[in-house]
Each structure stands twice: as structure tokens, then as C-alpha cells.
Design a protein around this nucleic acid. Structure first.
Lengths: 233, 233
DNA sequence: ACAAAAGTGTTTTGTGTACACCCATGG
DNA sequence: CCATGGGTGTACACAAAACACTTTTGT
């Protein structure tokens, strides 16, 4: 166990601080895009709404911490998160110095049942256009995460698509289009949208069709990770 | 001075850690894109090359810290930096926990004269395609920052353009094109590049022309911040 | 027969790229 | 008058957007 502290100045004034992760979990549903918030059940902040977030352990990677913290506060297990931005203004938390790394992810609301624990009194979904006043700079963190989410859906074709973890294994193209429309908050033309999808060879057409729908049954598609890795230029 | 520590668990095991900023300063020059590195002059890392970086003060914003650290180690003063990504794997620095926020910026090599100080024995430019083995994960930080730099030059038209702080107040369109070519590492067609520039109304044509050049003198342009803010949709 | 959504094709418009050409200056 | 880079215009390929039309199911 080497000690590299000599790299800094000799004046080893305490420059230690708390590091936390805050998790922006977007929830996809037919009724729009939501964000998971918790109600604080301890300290003088009791009753206030906030992002699920807590301090990082000293021996824990940041992305691990985000996953753990999310599970501890909301019960959502094994949800991987992406780093969005780090917030570290000296006065962002009154009374002490806390640097927080903002993470984000998107899941299907139907896939989970949030159950608050630890110091969270409640854990529920809020519409992304109707977020209450949150603690500290959490509103800004959400704004930033939402930008990242949307940019990723628009541009990045190399990484695994956002909808991979949101849509069921087999899905219709209209379901996929609806996902884009909800996340990007705009409408798409059906024909043009499908043309766009033709550029994604990792979107595999199956021989399965909808049943029991009162209109022409749609063909189901699936995402193929292997084909994607081949085409991930 | 309120104390919010009750938000966490009662088990107040020490979860404090060091937070640092690492600065990726890209240098634009006719000879290509460079990165500023320092040679470490203290500790058992003496002689190794690294990014200019150091711990953040407890009462200091992160972006302030980046500016200060850069000045302290390389003498480069008042260079604002953008956040790129935070690196915080538990084992990224052997022997202790250090979370570092990677910042980046680009300047004109001609505008500065790097002068190492504090624990930096040297501060010099390295070609971006020929970076030596650096300490810790600094090579990865550069890779990440370079991606951010390029993406910003390609996409973001809302923020002040990258070249605002790199080119002189008055510049020719060919100088601007050369900047793009160096940063993005590709050639552009002259005519098409200029058509692209027509979409930037904040690029103002002046009545000044080059002199003493052995070819047709080029018209000089300037960047107009006010016009840009109007068009920053 | 009708509603409702699936699915396909066509037309128009705009953008990216290649390339040809003329212009003004110094030597 | 030539070399050198400045500056502009045209033509083509392709992608994006608008929209019209056919298909297949349940009721």
C-alpha cells in the first residue's frame, strides 16, 4: 500500500470531502416520461422531496455506488446507470462540502415497484414536466440528466440503444416509435420513422404477430446485441 | 451553519475522500493538436508525466479549482475549463481514494508560455497522437476529453464557439477552416466549408483584408457574441 | 361496412459532397 | 505571367419531411 500523498503540498490541511451519487431514474410509461423521487424521512429535511442519493463508500466505484444507493432507497435492483455530470459547488449543500456525481438511466415503469427504505419515507414517480422544488441543486441535476438522455437517444448509435432495457423482448415498431416520442417529446411520421429504423440492422424482424387487437396485427421485432456489436462502427 | 449529516446513516464511518481536478489543456498550433503535460518533481512518481491536477479546496468550486490548479502547476492563468467526466474507480490511485473530475479546454499555443511550478518539474506540449504512458488513468482522461472537445466542435452551436478563445480577434475563413481540420483531424472542402459558415450569423464579415501576402488577400472576420446570443435557440 | 392501426410508396425539399472555375496579389 | 491561395457557382447523390394510399384485423 504505497502512499502518494507527497504529490500534494506539504501543508496537508484536511482537504477531504464527502462524495455522493444522485440517481435520476427516468420512468417510461404510456402517460409520459417520469422521474423517481423520494421523500426524505430524517433530519430537518424531513418531508422534502429529493433525488435518491447517498454517500459513496471509500472502497466502492462510483457506478457501483449509484446502483447500490438506488437499491437502498427505492428498492430498484440491478439498474445500471450512466454518468451525466458532477456537481460540486462549494455551497451546494449548506453546512458541509459534498461533491455529487449525477447518474441517470431509464426503465419501464411497469417493470418495477418502488419501495422506499432507509431514510426514504416514500418513492414515487413525478412527471418530468411537473417536478416540485427539490433539495439542494437536484432540480438542476434532473435538467442536465434529461439533456443527456435525449442527446443519447438522438445521436449515439454505437452503444446499446436506450430502449433495450425499456421495451419487452418482442415489440412492435409503433411501440418503439411511441418510446421515441415520449422521451424526445415530439411526434414522428410513421413512414419516415420506419425508414430510419431500416438503418439499424440490429433491429430484427420476427415471425411473431400481435393477437387480439382490433386492427391489423403488427409484426414484432427484437433487438440483437450481436449484430449491433458488428455494426458499432 | 446547519448540519445535515443526519441525512445519512447513523453509522458515521469515515466516508471522506480526496477530490481533485485534472486539466486536459489542448493546444492548437499549425503543427497539429497538442496536450499540455507536466513532469512530476516530487514523491516516488518523480520523473513521470501526468496531467496537471491537484486536490480541490474544501471551500472552492470545482471549476474554480481547475483554473487554480492549472495556474499553479503550469503558469497558465485565467483559462476557463469545461467539465468532461469524473473518474472515481476505487483503485484508480493506488494506496488511497481519489475521485477526480476531468476538465478540458483548448487554447492557442502561441498565446501562452508554460512555466512549471510547485511540484511540476516541467510543463510541455505533447502531440495528441503521441502521448506517453501517464500516471494512473490520465491517458483515459485525455481520450475522453478529446471526444468531448470534438463533439462540441461538431455539434454544439448554442454555446460560444470553441475557436473564440483560440483564433485572434480578426481571422480569415481559411484560418478557421484550418482550426476545424486540426481539431477534427480531417480535411474539408473549401467551398462547402464556407457554405456551412453561412449558417453562423454571428460570424461577422469585416472590411479589413490581409496585407503583404503573395496571393489574393483574404477578408477578415470576427465573432460577435451578441448576435450569437440572439440566435442561440 | 366501418374504425383503427399496420404497413408501403411517392413526391418534394433540403443538405452533404465533389469539383470546376475565376480573382487578386507578390515575385 | 506564373504560382498561390481566396472566393464563388454548379451539379449530383442522398437523406429528411410531407402525405397519400393499401392492408388486415375486430366489432
Amino acid at each position: 500500500m504505497k502512499d502518494y500523498s507527497a504529490i500534494g503540498e506539504k501543508d496537508d490541511a484536511p482537504r477531504l470531502m464527502e462524495v455522493s451519487t444522485d440517481c435520476v431514474v427516468f420512468g417510461y410509461g404510456i402517460d409520459g416520461l417520469k422521474v423517481m423521487l423520494i421523500e426524505i424521512g430524517a433530519s430537518e429535511l424531513k418531508g422534502k422531496w429529493a433525488l435518491p442519493g447517498d454517500r459513496v463508500y471509500v472502497d466502492e466505484d462510483l457506478d457501483q455506488a449509484a446502483v447500490r444507493v438506488l437499491k437502498e432507497l427505492t428498492g430498484l435492483e440491478n439498474i445500471p446507470l450512466q454518468q451525466a455530470h458532477t456537481f460540486g459547488d462549494a455551497d451546494r449543500v449548506p453546512g458541509k462540502r459534498v461533491v455529487t456525481i449525477g447518474f441517470y438511466t431509464i426503465i419501464n415503469k411497469m417493470d418495477v415497484r418502488p419501495t422506499p427504505s432507509k431514510w426514504a419515507d416514500a418513492a414515487s414517480w413525478f412527471d418530468v414536466n411537473n417536478i416540485p422544488q427539490l433539495t439542494f441543486d437536484h432540480n438542476a441535476i434532473i435538467t442536465y440528466a434529461l439533456q443527456k438522455l435525449r442527446n443519447r437517444l438522438r445521436h449515439s448509435n454505437r452503444r446499446t440503444p436506450l430502449w433495450e432495457s425499456v421495451l419487452p423482448e418482442h415489440f412492435t415498431l409503433s411501440e418503439l416509435q411511441h418510446f421515441y416520442e415520449v422521451v424526445l417529446d415530439r411526434k414522428f411520421d410513421k413512414g419516415n420513422f420506419r425508414k430510419k429504423l431500416n438503418e439499424m440492422p440490429y433491429l430484427i424482424e420476427t415471425e411473431i404477430f400481435q393477437t387480439d387487437v382490433s386492427h391489423r396485427p403488427a409484426r414484432l421485432f427484437k433487438y440483437d446485441r450481436k449484430t449491433h456489436e458488428k455494426y458499432a462502427y
